[in-house]
Design a binder for these strands. Structure first.
Lengths: 215, 215
DNA sequence: GCAAGCACTGAACGTGCGTTTAGTATACTG
DNA sequence: CAGTATACTAAACGCACGTTCAGTGCTTGC
């Protein structure tokens, strides 16, 4: 009962097994011996190749970042390339399912790279919002800074809570047809909104403004 | 350096310390000895009162459910009361900050009660959508089932990813003024949508429909 | 052919874990 | 006032953890 293929190098098998285990049971909920067993090697070999459990986690983080930002790290500053990389990853999400799960776990476990990655995604979202507002495809908002953060968190919700979302929709995992089912309501929501008029919005605007400066 | 007050019973202090620790470092990342130290008791007393670490987790889950659904478990089926309880909790979130953090951790750690709670929140969201559609305050959607799941996940995003959201907005935690800052863009989004017209929506509708049944 | 280096293992080490045990002090009960 | 239950602790137990160590086979370069 091996979780990963045999025709990879031991290092790659260990890394893949670690990604899967870390994603499923968290960093501290995973033992090196369990990873080694999945990869079909001894626990000592894991240390031999990666040095320590923490270094193995870092290697997993790097592997995720590589796949998110295309193929190599120098492109990190290129937002267009990053956007393309993310879209590609969303496209063939079946083979990236473990990576998505690991991303979700990483964001909630608060590893060393998680903050940087979240901030990068916020910046990416903000650029998308500003580009959309510039070319007229998106509405312009009062507070794009906060909107970018909120939209990023919302977008990551289906990654972080993917297991619950899938189970609630009656499937085992977020496979392409299920993502398709979710795309339309999401786009409907992002096109027409949820409320039929702006009574809630204006009421909240009125209620919030006078008390904004009070302690 | 004690995390909880002195004037509570030892049982309550242990439970509060466990909530805080579990929320911060996860279940398997927390030791009973650390919880006991926070509560100012011995590790053996934790076992004496709760029986085991897993039972202590269950007690934390129950405590969270109690606060979410009002005060006692028999009201679990009353959706209106649950909605009121959630709104109250959102109102004075300063004192419930630990509970919110624990909720987020619970949902991603996948504890035994997490699935049930998520499903309940989905049902609650669905009722809200249907009520809103019935009295005209909300638009009616093609697939309210999926929309309810998506909206629930999105709403929980700010709980699960609360730490990242707060840091991205330059604050230490999601305090009331920060929640106020987030309320307006959110309502703007839920009132007018994100896109300025429905080109994306109709394009996706057209692209999705022919391939919906294909493998 | 042989020394060097590499991938790899089984066994062991020390530590911290959840839990158990034996025991003490305190409060209630007859 | 004896007896019993209760709150609580220090110490210990067994175990699983991350990591180390000594060693084995295999490949590579000379």
């Amino acid at each position: 009962m091996r979780s990963v293929q045999e025709d990879l190098t031991a290092v790659a098998r260990i890394r893949d097994a670690a990604l899967s285990r870390f994603a499923a049971t968290g960093y501290s909920g995973t033992s090196i011996r369990a990873i080694a067993a999945d990869a079909g090697v001894s626990a000592a070999l894991v240390i031999h190749h990666f040095g320590s459990k923490e270094a193995l986690r870092s290697a997993c983080d790097d592997h995720l970042l590589d796949h998110i930002t295309g193929s190599d790290l120098p492109h990190l500053a290129d937002t267009a390339a990053a956007r393309r990389g993310i879209r590609d990853a969303m496209g063939n999400l079946s083979e990236n399912r473990v990576l998505f799960a690991y991303l979700g776990r990483m964001l909630t476990d608060g590893g060393p790279v998680a903050e940087h990655l979240f901030d990068r995604l916020v910046a990416l979202t903000r650029h998308t919002i500003e580009d959309g507002a510039a070319d007229g495809t998106m509405r312009s908002f009062d507070d794009p800074e906060v909107l970018a953060v909120v939209l990023t968190a919302q977008g990551l919700a289906n990654v972080v809570l993917g297991a619950h979302v899938a189970r609630s929709l009656g499937v085992q995992e977020l496979d392409p047809p299920t993502v398709g089912r979710m795309a339309l309501p999401l786009l409907e929501l992002y096109t027409h909104g949820l409320y039929s008029d702006d009574t809630m919005l204006t009421a909240t605007r009125a209620a919030l403004r006078p008390t904004e400066g009070s302690p």
